[in-house]
Amino acid sequence: MTDLASERRYVAGATVNLREELRDISRSAHLLRNLVHRDLTIRYKRSVLGFFWTMLHPLLLMLILVMVFSSIFRFTVPRYDIYVLSALLPWNFYAQTTVGSMASLAWNGALMKRVRVPKSIFTLSTVLAGLINLALAYIPLLVIMLVRGTPIRAAFLFLPVSLLILAVFTYGVSLILTAFSVYFVDVREMYTVAMTALMYLTPVIYPIEILPERFRPFFALNPLVYFIDIVRAPVHSGVLPTTQSLLIATTLALAAAVIGWTIFRRLSRGFYPYL
């Protein structure tokens, strides 16, 4: 009758242990699945086109951007539409997931006041749901490439690796942001504004070549530049990302994950009164 496996002990002052949290999350696999499913469906539940928005949205966005910018950048960038989309889709994933994970923790605050759940599970579910949306959004991109006759090279197969590195980075950043956003209500607003600025500071919709040479070193300080680089190369240019970008991106991703987890586990113990 005694189920020792289900014994749980909380000692005051102990911080959340990584192994325990991982065990809790793996025990909550059903919850994780449900949260991801809810994330994916609720977003579109009341709209007529439903799930197709995931694919339609990037297409419409691209149409607008191409109409506005292609005449400006026509001579500098070949296949401007693919150039934009191959970076914009992962960019949206990053932006929506980092902002969304803060919202997700806030929405689920009521839940955490009533049931004991591993608190980092909401961040994880937001990242996973974002990845599924991202994978779906690549379908119209592939269709455009086929229709336009853009060559799809073997390097395209490297894309999942790039996206995985980006996802790890996104997860780490989300953990840091969510941990602070519980304590301070304005973190979300400030970050959302910062993201808009950051998008124009990252070569997503314009090529970096249009900038004067003297500004370019500053771009090396923007971590997102490397991620955009590794996700764009296999799609737009059909080549593997440069070793340099790949190394920097991987290092940044791992650092973000380690720092994110460290901060989250420190701060998440004190969440309760602020939920």
């Binding site: 014994e7 005051a12 002052g13 009533r114």
Partner: peptide, 18 residues
Amino acid sequence: GIIPPNRGEVVTRGALAP
């Protein structure tokens, strides 16, 4: 297990349904 104690220790044995 929703509120962590600031002092002391809490032990539960068995599956919880709050």
